[in-house]
């Protein structure tokens, strides 16, 4: 997907390419409304008969792109076509709810969602819609309540745990957010992102004990990502620096911090140097030092931390 951006011309793409791109966007949940709209519109205008049954998926995709772009009336035209085809579909009702939301008719949307949920309490997608509606309208308390009860049924829904964690973070409830990340680590122990976030949350709470947990999970995140995660490496550097300057931390822990920072610095220096080469190669004006200024600043910061840890 690297080559696809807002300046891509849909007319230069073949039917197959268009279909593949739009499909990929749907599968990955890529929320790139401008591009989706451009490609999707060309697709619908030129190849709608060629698409077969997939046309309804594309219409739905276009509907969401329109809503994201704030062109609700065009979105409505796609929704009308879908509704004609599937008049009783729950999925269509959800789209109607979304349109209500986009038009600012929140009460109508809420009523619709609640009605649908009464009919079918196990409808996960509808529950999530209602949660996200609460969230965007600042009704955090309601959103949290509904999410918590949802998670009692769907305990292994990563997305929902993550959402709950984000909600807690926006309320500065770091301990509760940490709990969510603990659940996420239990569900997917090999996903480095959860370790990384958990480490960041523990660091934010602060205190020697939390810093030690944070250090452990930054290490885990670095390892699981195959040392590719800059955040994990930089987090490790940051937390080790903090631990070195702290009372109540054993000499043994401080020793290990020093070693870790040294190790992380090597890995980072390597990455910085590689990035610098990449940037200068891409730059038309050779040897302009300014273009790598942002990388130099980053490297400088890490070196300064290593110096302070040494003492």
């Amino acid at each position: 997907m690297e080559g696809i951006n807002s300046s891509t011309d849909a007319a230069e793409m073949s039917f197959g390419e268009l279909r593949k791109t739009l499909r990929k966007f749907r599968e990955n949940g890529t929320r790139n409304a401008t591009v989706t709209y451009k490609l999707g519109k060309y697709m619908c205008d030129n190849y709608s008969s060629k698409l077969g049954n997939e046309v309804w998926d594309v219409y739905e995709q276009m509907f969401f792109a329109c809503i994201d772009l704030g062109i609700n009336d065009i979105g409505l035209s796609y929704l009308r076509q879908i509704k004609e085809q599937f008049p009783e579909s729950k999925r269509v009702y959800r789209l109607i709810g979304v349109l209500h939301e986009a038009d600012g008719e929140l009460a109508e949307a809420e009523e619709l969602y609640k009605e649908m949920l009464e009919e079918n309490p196990g409808d996960a997608a509808m529950t999530k819609r209602l949660i996200s509606m609460y969230k965007t309208n600042g009704k955090t308390v309601e959103a949290v309540k509904l999410l918590v009860s949802y998670l009692e049924t769907y305990k292994c829904d990563n997305e929902a745990w993550l959402e709950l964690a984000e909600l807690y973070l926006s309320e500065y409830e770091y301990e509760k957010a940490a709990y969510c990340f603990e659940e996420l680590i239990l569900i997917s122990p090999a996903n480095y992102l959860y370790h990384q976030r958990y480490a960041e949350v523990r660091y934010t709470i602060g205190g020697a004990e939390n810093y030690l947990i944070s250090k452990m999970h930054f290490c885990q995140a670095a390892r699981l990502s195959g040392n590719s995660s800059n955040r994990a490496l930089l987090g490790l550097v940051t937390v080790c620096e903090t631990l070195r300057g702290l009372k109540g931390v054993t000499t043994e822990d401080k020793e290990s911090c020093f070693k870790l920072v040294k190790w992380a610095k090597e890995k980072l220096t390597d990455k910085y140097e590689k990035s610098k080469v990449e940037v200068s190669d891409a730059c038309p004006k050779k040897n302009s030092p300014k273009m790598t200024d942002h990388i130099d600043s980053g490297l400088e910061t890490v070196c300064a931390i290593l110096d302070s840890v040494k003492l």
Partner: peptide, 19 residues
């Protein structure tokens, strides 16, 4: 993303200060 978390924010601030 994660705008209320400290580690990367602190690091960013230091980098920007150096700059």
């Amino acid at each position: 993303q994660g705008i209320s978390l400290k580690p990367m924010f602190q690091l960013a601030m230091r980098t920007v200060e150096d700059y």
